[in-house]
Amino acid sequence: MVSIFITAFIVGGLICVVGQLLFDVAKLTPAHTLCILVVAGSVLDGLGLYEPFIDFAGAGATIPITSFGNALTHGAMAEAEKHGLIGVVTGMFEVTSSGISSAILFGFIASLIFKSKGKVK
């Protein structure tokens, strides 16, 4: 029970370290870095590795953006299993809708409530 919290912390932290190395060593922009991590998550799921990874690390695997690539691929493959090639396209957002829909919803709500402030500290 306690161990999953420790694993989530360490694994999630390590994925962020990979991101930081892409920022600082490879000198990539945040957008490029996040795209690479999303594609990595997608490929890992294609190899059947991401689901066991979630079982192992819990939120350490579902919270980093890599899980977004995993969710998209997972939805596409699940539908493809049922409906063949057509499912590849139709199943894409089956699993991942919560991330995008909540970002859109909360983004809109935030724009109703907040204003940006150029504060430094």
């Binding site: 920022f23 945040p30 907040f114 940006s116 402030k117 150029g118 430094v120």
Partner: peptide, 25 residues
């Protein structure tokens, strides 16, 4: 004006990006 220039040349003001020691305000 900080906010107006920032959003045009870089990111939205509230976007979290780590600025290096060489960057200016």
């Amino acid at each position: 004006q900080h906010n107006a220039v920032e959003r045009q040349f870089r990111y939205p003001v509230e976007y979290g990006s780590q600025k290096p020691a060489t960057s200016q305000w």
